[in-house]
């Protein structure tokens, strides 16, 4: 698939994000997300990957550059920010389900309130989506009764039911016990197979290799390297990328 010809959904141009003069998180970052692409963002801790995602969703104010959606620039104060946020879905590392609502209510709250959809219709779709991730029976439970992996799957469904055009995933398995990581990543893999546009920040390297159309390596607030998974993982071009990938591989122990 020739992705560079597909529509540009999110265009980030010369993005600059800092907290004060000394604390610059993102320096002059430019990135374009095309329709149908799965972009995986990797990098060492503190390099700004999560901040980047939060900027795309206008959860953080930016100090320079611009972010546009289908050619239209926006930020947290834009008049149509709620419309844009419906098009850009986000799933958080800490799931952030609403503890005072049941699973079904969690999933149908936004469609009913924001998209003004009919309650029955929203519930029907909610149940279908919950069924697809294997959580149909939990619809009347509360978040505290679910495991981490189950909560994260609900969080993904809650985001999907809004029919976003781009889905952002911020280290969605980082807070999970190892046994539950797979069930969540399986959901992401099936979404990718459906041809959805996704931006995934993750530490799971073999997953990244399997799911990505493009890998973006960020270090210290700037894009250091970009390429296909094969290129990035087998033949990293920069030294920093090489060092980063080394942290995930171990040589067999030779006894002295």
């Amino acid at each position: 698939m020739v992705l560079s010809m597909a529509a540009e959904l999110v265009k980030i141009e010369h993005l600059r994000k800092q907290y004060d003069d000394s604390n610059v998180i993102l320096k002059d970052l430019s990135l374009t997300i095309h329709e149908g692409e799965v972009v995986v963002i990797v990098g060492p801790s503190g390099c700004g990957k999560s901040t980047l995602l939060r900027c795309i969703n206008a959860l953080e104010p930016i100090q320079g550059g611009s972010i546009s959606y289908r050619g239209e620039k926006f930020d947290a104060r834009s008049k149509n920010i709620t419309a844009i946020r419906q098009k850009i879905g986000m799933v958080f590392q800490s799931y952030e389900l609403f503890p005072h609502k049941t699973i079904l209510q969690n999933v149908t709250l936004a469609p009913i309130l924001v998209q003004k959809r009919n309650k029955q219709e929203a519930e029907k779709e909610a149940m279908e989506l919950l069924d697809r991730v294997g959580l149909k029976e939990k619809c009347d439970s509360y978040p505290r009764q679910l495991s981490g992996g189950q909560k994260q799957r609900v969080a993904i469904v809650r985001s999907l039911i809004m029919h976003p055009e781009v889905q952002l995933f911020d280290e969605v398995t980082a807070a999970l016990d190892p046994e539950m990581v797979r069930e969540v990543l399986d959901v992401l893999l099936s979404l990718a197979r459906q041809g959805r546009t996704m931006v995934i920040v993750t530490h799971e390297m073999s997953f990244a290799k399997a799911v990505a159309d493009r890998v973006v390596f960020i270090d210290k607030g700037e894009i250091v390297e970009e390429g296909s998974p094969a290129e990035f993982f087998e033949h990293p071009k920069t030294e920093r990328a090489r060092q980063f990938l080394n942290t995930f591989t171990y040589d067999k122990v030779e006894k002295e």
């Binding site: 969703n57 959860l59 850009i88 879905g89 986000m90 952030e96 609403f98 936004a110 924001v114 809004m162």
Partner: peptide, 16 residues
């Protein structure tokens, strides 16, 4: 605050 952010990301208005 992240509860608020998660609601906003779904497209809820600040008042909602």
């Amino acid at each position: 605050p992240i509860q608020t952010e998660s609601a906003l990301s779904l497209g809820l208005s600040p008042v909602q």
